[in-house]
Write a protein that binds this DNA or RNA. Sequence first.
DNA 1: GTGCGGATGTGACAAGCGTCACCCCGGGGT
DNA 2: ACCCCGGGGTGACGCTTGTCACATCCGCAC
Lengths: 200, 200
Amino acid sequence: MIRVLLAEDQAMVRGALSALLNLEPDIEVLGSAPDGESAWRELQRLKPDVLVTDIEMPGLTGLEIAQRVHRHELPIKVVIVTTFARPGFLRRALDAGVSGYLLKDAPAEGLADALRLVHRGGRAIDPQLALEAWSDADPLNDRERQVLRLAGEGHAASEIGTQLNLSHGTVRNYLSEAIGKLGAANRIEAYRLARQKGWL
Amino acid sequence: MIRVLLAEDQAMVRGALSALLNLEPDIEVLGSAPDGESAWRELQRLKPDVLVTDIEMPGLTGLEIAQRVHRHELPIKVVIVTTFARPGFLRRALDAGVSGYLLKDAPAEGLADALRLVHRGGRAIDPQLALEAWSDADPLNDRERQVLRLAGEGHAASEIGTQLNLSHGTVRNYLSEAIGKLGAANRIEAYRLARQKGWL
DNA sequence: GTGCGGATGTGACAAGCGTCACCCCGGGGT
DNA sequence: ACCCCGGGGTGACGCTTGTCACATCCGCAC
């Protein structure tokens, strides 16, 4: 019997996935959580074999939970199930030692199989995404990322400077760097490109 | 017996919702479609009682399918199930004569009940969203919307002008109008605000 | 110490942006 | 005929952006 905990913020999807998994005779859904914090609590209380989690959730993200599980060396496999086919996310997930990374675009039938595979000690990584993840790495450094994120939210260079304790000139330098590295024409395009790749 | 067709682009969610609905003794999922066009074809072939559809899908969106059903006066109820709590979307959906508008944030148990309600001739609209939809209307006109959309994709005023056969000065005038109407500080913020409300 | 590299800042320049006042033109009302 | 109004355009103003060359400071290797 594979004992599963499910973390997913959209209630309807959570309920539906739970129904789906419970149809399998060898899988038991112990419980489910609508956000990162409660997922982490339930994880410690229920000690499931596998945690199936989304990435984008209020509070802790699925990636952060995976990191914690990894750091505490808990005997719990983590499988990420997400909308985001972003190489950067997969990379971070692998660094956090997850056993699976599936896309919500993949057929539902595959989920149970993936859980069985992971439970046996295997790994279930979306194949085409795995390719992309190795091909292009995030060219941005921390500062560029921070600045680009804020710029993408509509803040002007001087506002960003205040928030990060930088001069507005320096902010513009970082932005210019980021725009150049991404081959964009301006900050807006740069922001879109970076987001799309999961580099944020 | 309520005969349902399901349209949803994310395969895993589609499969899970299908499993969930099939658990109900009085609901039968006739089939499901991964995009707008095939949903429309299946709709005509299977003639279900209710179409349950997402909004964002490749090809036709759920809103466009609802409009078609409405225009052709088909005896099929449409229930939108979406992530987007955007007043503008709800408004457009209601104009298209849909019978239900549910959020994926709402509990999964409610879905079957909503379908039963709709099948009996009732309406199932997310209550708090319904409030918002009446409170604030889209202040933008067509030109402002077009221009803002392109600006949000990273295009400069002169590029937008070329695309829309306007002078770059006029484009900036429209942008300025939109920024003012939305109470934003610049085009980026204006774009974000408009998107968030579903005005695009 | 000397030197190098990374992080941050400065100043200047051209281009783009946001705002405003004002113009022209082509319908409708009346 | 008249005026008004909405769509589109112009030109000017000051500010912000994007770019680049150069300066400063700090830490670390040798």
